[in-house]
Simulated assay, not measured.
Amino acid sequence: MPPAPDARDGGTAPRRRGGRRHRWPVVVPFFAFLAVCFGLPAGTMVYGAFTVLDPESGASRISTENVSGSLSGAYGTGLTGSVELSLVTALLATVIGTLIAQAVVTSPRPALRGIVVSASGVLANFSGAPLAFAFIATLGTTGTVTQLFHLDRTGFSLYSFTGLVLAYLYFMVPLMVVTVLPALDGLRSQWQEAAASCGATRGQYWRHVGIPVLTPSLLGGAVLMFGTAFASHATAAVMVGSSQPLITIQIANALNGNVLVGQENLALAMSLNMVVIALLVMAVQIPLQRRSARWLG
Protein backbone atom coordinates (compact mmCIF):
# COMPACT_ATOMS: atom_id res chain seq x y z
CA MET A 1 0.00 0.00 0.00
CA PRO A 2 1.54 3.33 -0.97
CA PRO A 3 2.17 5.72 1.90
CA ALA A 4 -0.28 8.56 2.51
CA PRO A 5 0.91 11.91 1.21
CA ASP A 6 2.53 14.01 3.88
CA ALA A 7 1.20 17.53 4.38
CA ARG A 8 4.79 18.83 4.42
CA ASP A 9 5.58 17.66 0.90
CA GLY A 10 2.88 19.85 -0.60
CA GLY A 11 0.52 16.97 -1.45
CA THR A 12 -2.50 18.90 -0.32
CA ALA A 13 -1.28 22.37 -1.23
CA PRO A 14 -2.70 22.47 -4.79
CA ARG A 15 -6.09 21.43 -3.51
CA ARG A 16 -6.10 24.22 -0.93
CA ARG A 17 -4.96 26.82 -3.42
CA GLY A 18 -7.64 25.68 -5.82
CA GLY A 19 -10.23 25.91 -3.06
CA ARG A 20 -9.24 29.47 -2.32
CA ARG A 21 -9.20 30.30 -6.01
CA HIS A 22 -12.75 29.05 -6.52
CA ARG A 23 -14.26 30.88 -3.55
CA TRP A 24 -14.32 34.30 -5.19
CA PRO A 25 -16.87 33.49 -7.93
CA VAL A 26 -19.26 32.30 -5.24
CA VAL A 27 -19.25 35.57 -3.27
CA VAL A 28 -19.28 37.88 -6.31
CA PRO A 29 -23.13 37.83 -6.58
CA PHE A 30 -23.38 38.64 -2.89
CA PHE A 31 -21.11 41.67 -3.19
CA ALA A 32 -22.94 42.72 -6.35
CA PHE A 33 -26.22 42.55 -4.43
CA LEU A 34 -24.75 44.69 -1.63
CA ALA A 35 -23.44 47.22 -4.12
CA VAL A 36 -26.77 47.59 -5.93
CA CYS A 37 -29.21 47.36 -3.01
CA PHE A 38 -27.14 49.10 -0.32
CA GLY A 39 -24.16 50.85 -1.82
CA LEU A 40 -26.04 52.72 -4.55
CA PRO A 41 -28.82 54.05 -2.26
CA ALA A 42 -26.28 54.97 0.42
CA GLY A 43 -24.12 56.83 -2.08
CA THR A 44 -27.15 58.66 -3.46
CA MET A 45 -28.20 59.62 0.05
CA VAL A 46 -24.78 60.97 0.98
CA TYR A 47 -24.51 62.93 -2.27
CA GLY A 48 -27.99 64.41 -1.85
CA ALA A 49 -27.36 65.30 1.79
CA PHE A 50 -24.43 67.50 0.79
CA THR A 51 -26.10 68.97 -2.30
CA VAL A 52 -28.09 72.21 -2.22
CA LEU A 53 -30.35 73.31 -5.08
CA ASP A 54 -30.58 76.97 -6.05
CA PRO A 55 -34.34 77.76 -6.32
CA GLU A 56 -33.73 80.49 -8.93
CA SER A 57 -31.26 78.91 -11.32
CA GLY A 58 -31.92 75.27 -10.47
CA ALA A 59 -28.18 74.63 -10.24
CA SER A 60 -26.79 72.39 -7.52
CA ARG A 61 -23.72 72.92 -5.39
CA ILE A 62 -21.93 71.05 -2.65
CA SER A 63 -22.64 72.43 0.80
CA THR A 64 -23.20 71.38 4.41
CA GLU A 65 -26.35 73.48 4.78
CA ASN A 66 -28.65 70.43 4.76
CA VAL A 67 -26.65 68.64 7.43
CA SER A 68 -26.40 71.70 9.66
CA GLY A 69 -30.11 72.37 9.17
CA SER A 70 -30.99 68.82 10.13
CA LEU A 71 -29.15 69.24 13.44
CA SER A 72 -30.71 72.56 14.47
CA GLY A 73 -34.14 74.01 15.12
CA ALA A 74 -37.16 71.74 14.94
CA TYR A 75 -35.21 69.02 13.17
CA GLY A 76 -32.61 68.93 15.94
CA THR A 77 -35.46 68.68 18.44
CA GLY A 78 -36.85 65.72 16.49
CA LEU A 79 -33.49 63.94 16.60
CA THR A 80 -33.21 64.59 20.32
CA GLY A 81 -36.76 63.36 20.89
CA SER A 82 -36.08 60.11 19.03
CA VAL A 83 -32.89 59.51 20.97
CA GLU A 84 -34.64 60.23 24.28
CA LEU A 85 -37.55 57.91 23.43
CA SER A 86 -35.13 55.17 22.35
CA LEU A 87 -33.05 55.47 25.52
CA VAL A 88 -36.05 55.30 27.86
CA THR A 89 -37.73 52.39 26.08
CA ALA A 90 -34.43 50.51 25.70
CA LEU A 91 -33.70 50.79 29.42
CA LEU A 92 -37.19 49.72 30.47
CA ALA A 93 -37.36 46.88 27.94
CA THR A 94 -33.94 45.58 29.04
CA VAL A 95 -34.88 45.48 32.71
CA ILE A 96 -38.40 44.08 32.28
CA GLY A 97 -37.42 41.60 29.57
CA THR A 98 -34.48 40.28 31.58
CA LEU A 99 -36.63 39.75 34.69
CA ILE A 100 -39.25 37.88 32.67
CA ALA A 101 -36.61 35.74 30.96
CA GLN A 102 -34.97 34.90 34.30
CA ALA A 103 -38.35 33.85 35.72
CA VAL A 104 -38.87 31.59 32.72
CA VAL A 105 -35.40 30.02 32.98
CA THR A 106 -35.76 29.25 36.69
CA SER A 107 -39.34 28.00 36.39
CA PRO A 108 -39.80 24.26 37.08
CA ARG A 109 -42.53 24.08 34.44
CA PRO A 110 -41.16 23.44 30.94
CA ALA A 111 -44.52 24.29 29.37
CA LEU A 112 -44.23 27.86 30.67
CA ARG A 113 -41.05 28.40 28.66
CA GLY A 114 -42.70 27.22 25.45
CA ILE A 115 -45.69 29.49 26.00
CA VAL A 116 -43.59 32.56 26.82
CA VAL A 117 -41.19 32.01 23.91
CA SER A 118 -44.03 31.49 21.44
CA ALA A 119 -45.93 34.52 22.69
CA SER A 120 -42.78 36.66 22.66
CA GLY A 121 -42.01 35.67 19.08
CA VAL A 122 -45.49 36.74 17.99
CA LEU A 123 -45.69 39.96 20.03
CA ALA A 124 -42.20 41.06 19.00
CA ASN A 125 -43.42 41.24 15.41
CA PHE A 126 -46.73 42.94 16.23
CA SER A 127 -45.99 46.61 15.65
CA GLY A 128 -46.73 49.38 13.21
CA ALA A 129 -50.22 50.52 12.28
CA PRO A 130 -52.06 47.46 13.73
CA LEU A 131 -50.43 48.02 17.12
CA ALA A 132 -51.27 51.73 17.03
CA PHE A 133 -54.91 50.96 16.21
CA ALA A 134 -55.08 48.44 19.05
CA PHE A 135 -53.75 50.98 21.55
CA ILE A 136 -56.06 53.72 20.28
CA ALA A 137 -59.07 51.41 20.61
CA THR A 138 -57.96 50.39 24.11
CA LEU A 139 -56.27 53.39 25.72
CA GLY A 140 -57.30 56.23 23.42
CA THR A 141 -59.56 59.11 24.38
CA THR A 142 -62.65 56.94 23.85
CA GLY A 143 -60.88 53.63 24.35
CA THR A 144 -62.41 50.74 26.25
CA VAL A 145 -59.97 50.73 29.16
CA THR A 146 -59.93 54.54 29.32
CA GLN A 147 -63.71 54.67 29.70
CA LEU A 148 -63.86 51.69 32.06
CA PHE A 149 -61.30 53.01 34.56
CA HIS A 150 -61.78 56.73 33.80
CA LEU A 151 -58.13 57.21 32.95
CA ASP A 152 -58.87 60.58 31.41
CA ARG A 153 -59.49 61.97 34.90
CA THR A 154 -55.92 61.08 35.93
CA GLY A 155 -54.42 63.19 33.15
CA PHE A 156 -53.19 60.18 31.19
CA SER A 157 -53.02 60.66 27.43
CA LEU A 158 -52.06 57.99 24.94
CA TYR A 159 -51.00 60.68 22.46
CA SER A 160 -48.00 61.75 24.53
CA PHE A 161 -44.45 60.66 25.25
CA THR A 162 -45.71 58.28 27.94
CA GLY A 163 -48.19 56.72 25.53
CA LEU A 164 -45.45 56.14 22.97
CA VAL A 165 -43.30 54.47 25.62
CA LEU A 166 -46.15 52.07 26.49
CA ALA A 167 -46.75 51.24 22.85
CA TYR A 168 -43.06 50.63 22.14
CA LEU A 169 -42.66 48.44 25.21
CA TYR A 170 -45.45 46.21 23.90
CA PHE A 171 -43.18 44.78 21.22
CA MET A 172 -39.75 45.59 22.67
CA VAL A 173 -40.14 43.64 25.92
CA PRO A 174 -40.95 40.36 24.08
CA LEU A 175 -38.04 41.03 21.74
CA MET A 176 -35.72 41.43 24.73
CA VAL A 177 -37.04 38.19 26.25
CA VAL A 178 -36.16 36.28 23.09
CA THR A 179 -32.77 38.03 22.91
CA VAL A 180 -31.61 37.42 26.47
CA LEU A 181 -32.92 33.87 26.97
CA PRO A 182 -29.90 32.17 25.31
CA ALA A 183 -27.54 34.18 27.53
CA LEU A 184 -29.39 33.13 30.68
CA ASP A 185 -29.34 29.52 29.50
CA GLY A 186 -25.56 29.83 29.13
CA LEU A 187 -25.10 30.38 32.87
CA ARG A 188 -23.88 27.00 34.07
CA SER A 189 -25.38 25.57 37.23
CA GLN A 190 -21.87 24.42 38.26
CA TRP A 191 -20.88 28.05 38.73
CA GLN A 192 -23.61 28.63 41.30
CA GLU A 193 -22.85 25.33 43.01
CA ALA A 194 -19.16 26.20 43.20
CA ALA A 195 -19.98 29.63 44.64
CA ALA A 196 -22.30 28.06 47.22
CA SER A 197 -19.65 25.52 48.22
CA CYS A 198 -17.30 28.45 48.89
CA GLY A 199 -19.85 30.04 51.20
CA ALA A 200 -21.21 32.66 48.78
CA THR A 201 -24.83 33.68 49.07
CA ARG A 202 -27.19 33.91 46.09
CA GLY A 203 -26.78 37.68 46.01
CA GLN A 204 -22.99 37.40 46.07
CA TYR A 205 -23.10 34.88 43.22
CA TRP A 206 -25.10 37.25 41.04
CA ARG A 207 -22.99 40.26 41.99
CA HIS A 208 -19.60 38.64 41.39
CA VAL A 209 -20.34 35.93 38.80
CA GLY A 210 -23.77 36.08 37.14
CA ILE A 211 -24.09 39.79 36.37
CA PRO A 212 -20.45 40.25 35.16
CA VAL A 213 -20.86 37.31 32.79
CA LEU A 214 -24.23 38.56 31.55
CA THR A 215 -23.16 42.20 31.20
CA PRO A 216 -22.04 41.96 27.54
CA SER A 217 -25.28 40.20 26.59
CA LEU A 218 -27.41 42.70 28.50
CA LEU A 219 -25.60 45.67 27.01
CA GLY A 220 -25.89 44.13 23.55
CA GLY A 221 -29.62 43.61 24.08
CA ALA A 222 -30.02 47.19 25.29
CA VAL A 223 -28.21 48.48 22.20
CA LEU A 224 -30.46 46.34 20.02
CA MET A 225 -33.54 47.75 21.78
CA PHE A 226 -32.24 51.27 21.22
CA GLY A 227 -31.81 50.63 17.50
CA THR A 228 -35.26 49.06 17.24
CA ALA A 229 -36.98 51.99 18.91
CA PHE A 230 -34.93 54.56 17.00
CA ALA A 231 -35.89 53.10 13.61
CA SER A 232 -39.59 52.52 14.38
CA HIS A 233 -41.91 54.77 12.43
CA ALA A 234 -45.39 53.45 11.70
CA THR A 235 -46.56 53.09 15.31
CA ALA A 236 -45.66 56.67 16.23
CA ALA A 237 -46.90 58.06 12.90
CA VAL A 238 -50.38 56.57 13.37
CA MET A 239 -50.66 57.25 17.10
CA VAL A 240 -49.30 60.77 17.55
CA GLY A 241 -48.58 62.08 14.06
CA SER A 242 -46.54 65.27 14.24
CA SER A 243 -47.57 66.15 17.80
CA GLN A 244 -44.40 64.47 19.11
CA PRO A 245 -41.06 65.55 17.60
CA LEU A 246 -39.51 62.40 16.12
CA ILE A 247 -36.98 62.28 13.33
CA THR A 248 -38.72 59.44 11.47
CA ILE A 249 -41.95 61.44 11.23
CA GLN A 250 -40.04 64.53 10.13
CA ILE A 251 -38.32 62.54 7.38
CA ALA A 252 -41.71 61.30 6.17
CA ASN A 253 -43.07 64.86 6.13
CA ALA A 254 -40.03 66.09 4.19
CA LEU A 255 -40.35 63.30 1.64
CA ASN A 256 -43.99 64.31 1.15
CA GLY A 257 -42.88 67.80 0.19
CA ASN A 258 -43.63 69.57 3.48
CA VAL A 259 -40.41 71.63 3.38
CA LEU A 260 -39.39 75.09 2.24
CA VAL A 261 -38.13 75.76 -1.26
CA GLY A 262 -34.44 74.94 -1.49
CA GLN A 263 -34.60 72.37 1.32
CA GLU A 264 -35.71 69.42 -0.77
CA ASN A 265 -32.67 67.36 0.28
CA LEU A 266 -33.20 67.97 3.98
CA ALA A 267 -34.79 64.52 4.35
CA LEU A 268 -31.62 62.96 2.97
CA ALA A 269 -29.55 64.81 5.56
CA MET A 270 -31.83 63.59 8.37
CA SER A 271 -31.61 60.07 6.97
CA LEU A 272 -27.83 60.37 6.99
CA ASN A 273 -27.99 61.28 10.68
CA MET A 274 -30.01 58.13 11.34
CA VAL A 275 -27.54 56.01 9.38
CA VAL A 276 -24.62 57.40 11.38
CA ILE A 277 -26.38 56.58 14.65
CA ALA A 278 -27.25 53.10 13.35
CA LEU A 279 -23.60 52.50 12.43
CA LEU A 280 -22.56 53.56 15.93
CA VAL A 281 -25.10 51.13 17.38
CA MET A 282 -23.69 48.32 15.25
CA ALA A 283 -20.12 49.24 16.19
CA VAL A 284 -21.05 48.85 19.86
CA GLN A 285 -23.21 45.74 19.51
CA ILE A 286 -20.85 43.53 17.46
CA PRO A 287 -17.96 43.52 20.01
CA LEU A 288 -20.46 42.90 22.81
CA GLN A 289 -21.87 39.90 20.96
CA ARG A 290 -18.39 38.47 20.44
CA ARG A 291 -17.48 38.88 24.09
CA SER A 292 -20.78 37.33 25.18
CA ALA A 293 -20.23 34.36 22.85
CA ARG A 294 -16.74 33.87 24.31
CA TRP A 295 -18.10 33.62 27.86
CA LEU A 296 -21.31 31.72 27.19
CA GLY A 297 -20.32 29.67 24.13
Rank of each mutant, 00 (worst) to 15 (best):
V88P: 01
D54F: 05
L112T: 10
A236N: 02
I251R: 00
V95I: 12
A293M: 12
R61F: 14
N66V: 07
T94V: 14
P287A: 10
I96V: 15
H208I: 08
R291M: 14
A13G: 11
V238K: 07
V238A: 07
M1I: 10
G76F: 01
A42K: 06
A35D: 10
A283G: 14
A200M: 11
V67H: 01
P245H: 07
M270F: 00
A129L: 15
S197D: 10
W206V: 04
P41C: 01
F161M: 13
T162M: 11
A32D: 07
A267M: 00
S118T: 10
C198T: 15
V52F: 04
G114I: 07
P287C: 13
S68G: 15
V88I: 12
L224I: 11
V275E: 02
G43M: 06
Q102N: 14
A269D: 00
Q190G: 10
L139E: 00
G78T: 02
S70C: 11
A42W: 05
T154R: 09
T98Q: 04
G11Y: 06
A90P: 01
V27E: 08
A231S: 13
V27R: 08
Q263M: 05
Q285S: 09
G143N: 03
V284I: 15
I286Q: 12
G227P: 04
A90Y: 00
L260E: 14
A90F: 02
V27K: 05
L34P: 05
V26D: 07
